[in-house]
Amino acid sequence: MFYFGQEQWNWLVAVYLFLGGMGAMVMAISTLVHRLKVFGQDNTLLMIWGNLTGFVMLSVGSAMLFYHLLDHLAVWHVLLGVFNKPDAWIAWGTWSIIFGMIWGLVYTLPHIPTPKFLGWCQLLKFFKWFGTKYAGLMAWGTVFMSVFTAVYTGMLLQSFPAVELWHNPGIPVLFTVSATSTALASLLILQYVVVRADDHELRHRFELIDTWLIGSEIIIIAGFFFYLLNGTLNGQASHELLWGDPIWTYGFFVAGLIVPFLINLGMVTHKLPSNGFLVIVSATLILMGGYILRHYMLLAGIWELPYPK
């Protein structure tokens, strides 16, 4: 048998998977936190920064995806996909990203003061009014769409039956966990660096949840480790490509999971001082790990056939 990987879904798609999942969850959490007035606080600034950051992440991710296409002019066909091909994840994902971004933006707009040079824009006025009137709808819509976006990328990768690394229930779980974890890391960075509001409880909650998520992610990765190690030759090939590569092992697993986990654990158990520096270091490592994870997931997918590529 021959074993080989793929190169069609290259770093462009890896970036999208990273930014897409993360950006979507950033928007979901931002919106949620604001809508529910979590910890009784205003959180508006965080929400605005969060949603705009998420919006930018999703935009860049989508741009990567668009750029990656072979026939750009035909892209509009995907919008009809949910009617023609309801069994295709990408069809749903396209709309969930679009709606998540639009609804999230519409939810956010009323809270952003209109700059003078845009005073004339009726459309802007309209959206601001709409976003105020239907804030609840927009909020829950955004949250739902964004969570869907974060989950569907994992479902998509799972739907490719030939690749043992991907075709298992662990992938959607892994991607969702990772998306949420990286989103929280982004939000923490925003909180400490940009927003700097007096929302320490929120920050601690984020850090706590993130600790749980990273811990879960370590367990999931460990699950993959043994699953592939004892798996078919296909799985073993993927195993070799992952664990034989220092970037995965040290860049992702150690630096992107273990180290942040330990830092976070230290912080939430008060063994370590909860200072901005550590938080940002941990968050940055998580972000780096989040990208490496997606990149290597794509890289290490293996096909097993009685003929070569």
């Binding site: 074993y3 190169e7 030759l233 090939a237 070799e240 034989g244």
Partner: peptide, 14 residues
């Protein structure tokens, strides 16, 4: 380009 699989990287027993 991703690191490419070569005959040498693994496939013990194939």
């Amino acid at each position: 380009s991703f690191p490419k699989l070569t005959r040498r990287t693994f496939i013990k027993g194939a």
